[in-house]
């Protein structure tokens, strides 16, 4: 039996909106530590790993594991019926075939209830090995999103080079090429604009910008983003949540 309450429906609404474009049917595994979702996009280029810890909920109970098999777009559609500041409760009996969502306004004189039909989804799970990343960059999520959007005007691919001088994003296409370089910096006024680079060795990887723009939709969830890269391996891109994270594993492009 799962019963989880959020003080503001917006906390879940914006997470689901951020990941819905990449995912379809997926299983949300619920247990006493919280809700977890791991799902590949249909092209197997990006793996989304979401964790919502139980302490992020105002009330949380899940005495036995519950798997919520659903289409993420259906969940997004139902969540659209909730006001951002509604109190949201998720409820599902063990082995139930429905997820009950209730939305209450703070004065509790309006309560909506939606029952989302659940499905049996036999989803493949990928084992993500612990990886020592050569480079870790913590930067403003909005600045990353903006930098990549600018370069997507030039090309469908971006090359990211990280060395001790900083991090360079570059793209080259028919109309020309462009690049943006950030030096490591500490911004005392607002820390989120700092660029923090931890490097064991320089690394350069290229990625598809369409998928990257889907990933950076999560910029609304966290003021900073952590990019982790190592030669020849998928990048790990993480947006921290108050009690959990939205993490993406992103396969690179290589020179043919």
């Amino acid at each position: 039996m799962l019963e989880a309450k959020l003080d503001a429906a917006s906390q879940l609404k914006k997470i689901v909106e951020a990941i819905r474009d990449m995912l379809g049917e997926c299983n949300i595994e619920c247990n006493e530590t919280g809700l977890a979702l791991q799902s590949l996009d249909k092209s197997h280029i990006v793996l989304v790993s979401l964790l919502l810890g139980s302490d992020g909920f105002s009330e949380y109970r899940c005495d036995r594991g519950v798997t919520l098999g659903l289409n993420i777009n259906s969940l997004a559609t139902v969540l659209r019926c909730a006001n951002n500041d509604d109190i949201l409760t998720l409820r599902s009996e063990d082995r139930a075939n429905e997820l009950i969502l209730t939305f209450e306004d703070s004065k509790a004189d309006r309560i909506s209830e939606f029952n989302l039909r659940l499905m049996d989804i036999d989803q493949e799970y990928l084992a993500i090995p612990e990886t020592e990343y050569a480079a870790t960059v913590v930067m403003s999520a909005a600045v990353l999103q903006r930098t990549l959007r600018d370069l997507s005007a030039l090309s469908e691919a971006v090359t990211i080079e990280i060395d001790k001088e900083g991090i360079r994003f570059s793209a080259e296409g028919d109309l020309g090429k462009g690049s943006t370089h950030f030096k490591p910096c500490v911004d005392m006024e607002n820390a989120e604009n700092s660029i923090n680079i931890t490097l064991s060795e320089p690394v350069s990887l290229s990625f598809n910008l369409q998928y990257f723009s889907n990933i950076t939709k999560a910029s609304s969830l966290s003021s900073t983003v952590t990019l982790q890269m190592t030669a020849g391996m998928p990048a790990q891109i993480e947006y921290k949540l108050p009690s959990g994270h939205v993490r993406y594993y992103f396969a690179p492009k290589i020179e043919d």
């Binding site: 799970y125 090995p129 998928p234 492009k253």
Partner: peptide, 14 residues
């Protein structure tokens, strides 16, 4: 030309 890799060539499905 560049080739897009798939995660399947990095991560094993459990």
């Amino acid at each position: 030309a560049t080739k897009q890799l798939s995660l399947d060539s990095f991560y094993k499905s459990t």
